[in-house]
């Protein structure tokens, strides 16, 4: 967050769902920015609010959901102040999105070419013929073999990996400045995942775009991201560059996530897990939201929510341990971490 030259800046974003049970705060005061040309990974478990954050950026939150507060500044302009028509001009043109499920993200009744061409028709007013010609170029760019033939293929004729490439082609058709990728590889097999990630990285370099990558897979983060924001229960708990995050994680939750990765370098009988579940957004604990699952939690943690503290060098963490007010025993989060059960 120290980089001044950021393409998008999300400040105190609050997105809530208003249901008959009352307000459910899915995203509660999220701050981050994506430096120009770089990739920010937004990491967290299911239900932590990652996808809602990305949909908020696209302004695609549907009723009963609502962006309640905060600001999203894209290229110096406040996206939350834009009209729906202005947003339509931005979507797919300056900010694009790729979705998790390549199997269902393409309309079954149109060819791949038609669907890529649609981006040009919407944003550049091209005729169908010109747009289809550009679609062939895009398919070539995303590495689909024999693009001239594939452009007339229907989604059901392509494999998952090919469809995700086609989705990427659609998203990148208008050369967006920011790509929001919501778990782009989760639905693919591991070998295809690596190909798609490499493709995204290559295109990002070639086209000079920034990326917000949403994932729960730390392996993907290590491979693609420059900076990482870790989300937990609607809040950012840690923000760091990718090297710092992996070498010197500060928040017990981040440490827990890293520990729960299977490792090949040591002999593990059992995989470490973070005990418990992400609290439901309608039953958030008072105090630190991770406290019920945290091995270091003290009364302070259970009573008061810590702020996101700046530790210097762009490293931020939301944890009492790293503040002056910490009154528990001296801990080194990374080395002393044991899952809550074993303490």
């Amino acid at each position: 967050m120290t980089t001044t030259n950021s393409i998008i800046k999300v400040d105190d974003l609050q997105t809530s769902f208003f249901t008959h049970k009352g307000e459910i705060k899915a995203v509660d005061g999220v701050h981050f920015d994506v430096p120009a040309g770089k990739t920010l990974g937004l990491v967290g478990e299911s239900g932590s609010g990652k996808s809602i954050t990305s949909l908020s950026i696209m302004r695609l939150i549907e009723s009963p959901g609502k962006i309640k507060g905060g600001s999203i500044t894209f290229n110096g302009e406040d996206l939350l102040a834009k009209s729906e028509a202005e947003m339509r001009d931005i979507r797919g043109n300056q900010i694009s999105m790729i979705f998790q499920e390549p199997m269902t993200s393409l309309n079954p009744v149109y060819t791949i070419g038609d669907q890529i061409a649609e981006a040009y028709q919407i944003h550049q007013g091209k005729t169908k013929k010109e747009a289809l010609q550009k679609a062939v170029d895009m398919l070539e760019l995303v590495g689909i073999p024999s693009p001239k033939a594939r452009v007339k293929a229907y989604p059901h004729e392509l494999s998952g990996g090919m469809r995700q490439r086609a989705m990427i082609a659609i998203a990148l058709a208008c050369n967006p400045q920011l790509l929001v990728a919501d778990e782009p590889t989760t639905a693919l097999d591991v070998t295809i995942q690596a190909q798609i990630l490499r493709l995204i990285n290559r295109l990002q370099d070639e086209l000079g775009m920034s990326m917000l990558l949403i994932t729960h897979d730390l392996g993907v983060v290590a491979e693609t991201c420059d900076y990482v924001a870790v989300m937990y229960a609607g809040k950012i708990v840690e923000y760091a560059d990718v090297n710092t995050l992996f070498s010197n994680p500060k928040h017990p939750y981040t440490v827990g996530l890293l520990k729960s990765l299977p490792r090949h370098d040591i002999d593990q009988e059992e995989l470490e897990v973070i005990k418990g579940m992400v609290p439901r957004p309608d039953e958030l604990p008072e105090g630190c939201r991770f406290a019920p699952r945290c091995p270091f939690a003290t009364d302070l943690c259970r009573e008061r929510l810590p702020d996101l503290e700046d530790l210097g060098e762009g490293n931020q963490v939301r944890c009492w341990i790293h503040t002056d007010q910490w009154n528990g025993p001296e801990v080194n989060v990374k080395d002393d971490y044991r899952s809550a059960e074993s303490t």
Partner: peptide, 26 residues
């Protein structure tokens, strides 16, 4: 509710386009 409708909306398609070109044929 299907994802491809979200996807075309994220592409900047207008409501009319989504309704007549993407929902109706389905």
């Amino acid at each position: 509710k299907l994802e491809y409708i979200d996807a075309v909306r994220a592409l900047g398609a207008s409501d009319a386009r989504i309704i007549f070109l993407h929902i109706l044929p389905n």
